[in-house]
Write a protein that binds this DNA or RNA. Structure first.
Lengths: 208, 208
DNA sequence: GTCTATAATTTGATAGAC
DNA sequence: GTCTATCAAATTATAGAC
């Protein structure tokens, strides 16, 4: 495969990523994608056969990147809290580069759940440690405090992902109040999330 | 307007709400809506002229309901923390009834931002107290601890809204682990969010 | 008000020249 | 590999009978 060929394919994938992420599968138009890639519409079909296959490639890439962020949970050389801290750093940095990533993945999954189960099964192969399992084990050895791990994981993901999902609405509301929520806020967000983690992992008041 | 007429219009709106929320504007098909409403496709146009106008009605209704949840911030008879607690109860109960609400609103806004600014401007007329303003005032009078109100509001909305947004993906991941995240978890979620609020509002360690 | 039938438009996909 | 021209299918919207 020549250099030019690969270049066109990448231009298409890049454009497809942008358009699919913004508009979703149905909202994205092949014409838009080819325009943004600066090539002819017929070439999309030449390289990817049809819309669905092009979408799949974009979607799988996004999902894989998202799951990649969680590899740090498996780093047994670090204490549990430190692993979670690093995950927070990773995922917030990652999402500030791809702010529409969470929304894209979730929206497409909510429309077509079956698709997801296949892809996840594939990604789980990587023998990674699940955060919930990790927390349960750390509670048994008293490395961390006792709490509901499911709720905690939900809270954690909420704190990290939602600010980017809700950026459009939040910006609109906040900006009308004279405050500005931009990338510079990421540091504050990381700090706040870690504060929450430390609070949950070290507090001693939740023993039912 | 007769009884039967109103009933048809409501059946359409109900069906349109379901279909638009699940599939978004582009993914929703007029045929699906009419099928689900149990009426003929042409009637959609008779009552609402076109797809866009039908969508607008659904969207505005959703947005208004969401903003309605925040009225409790203006209840000056309650202490600040109690207002926020009640908001958490309200919004989580509300979202468990309409779990696709947040996603729907955010997704459509991210596609068409201009639309939103009009609608928000309209909704802000209601002389309601903005939570950020409320927090700032409470900090000045030392009713609550000092912290960044913007990050806090972001955290708060994250903790409440994201679990419902991410329900499809979270269910898929968690369930494969043998755990189940269902409506019964709402109480635990409320408790956890309130714990976070109390922690932020009463802690004394953040003075830079 | 409600339906059937059909027009008009959009859009994904293909054929074939270069 | 890339383009133009065109097809085929899906979908919004309308016309007109009842």
């Amino acid at each position: 495969m020549g250099l030019k060929e690969k270049c066109t394919e990448e231009k298409i994938l890049e454009a497809a990523k942008n358009v699919f992420m913004k508009y979703g599968f149905y909202g994205a138009k092949m014409q838009d994608i080819s325009n943004q890639a600066g090539i002819n519409k017929a070439l999309l079909h030449y390289y990817f056969r049809n819309k669905e296959k092009l979408f799949d490639q974009v979607f799988e890439g996004a999902l894989a990147k998202y799951f990649e962020q969680m590899l740090v949970f498996s780093d047994t050389s670090l204490p549990v809290q430190e692993r979670i801290f690093r995950y927070v750093d990773n995922v917030i940095t990652f999402l500030s580069e791809y702010p529409q990533m969470s929304m894209f993945i979730i929206k497409e999954i909510s429309i077509n759940q079956e698709m997801f189960y296949e892809k996840v099964a594939h990604l789980k192969k990587g023998s990674r440690i699940h955060l919930i399992t990790l927390l349960q084990q750390a509670m048994e050895t008293d490395e961390i405090a006792q709490f509901d791990p499911v709720i905690f994981v939900m809270n954690l993901h909420s704190l990290c992902a939602y600010p980017f999902i809700a950026a459009p609405i939040f910006k609109a509301i906040i900006n009308t109040n004279g405050v500005d929520f931009e990338d510079a806020e990421n540091l504050k967000l990381k700090k706040s999330v870690k504060e929450f983690i430390a609070f949950k992992l070290t507090k001693t008041n939740e023993k039912k």
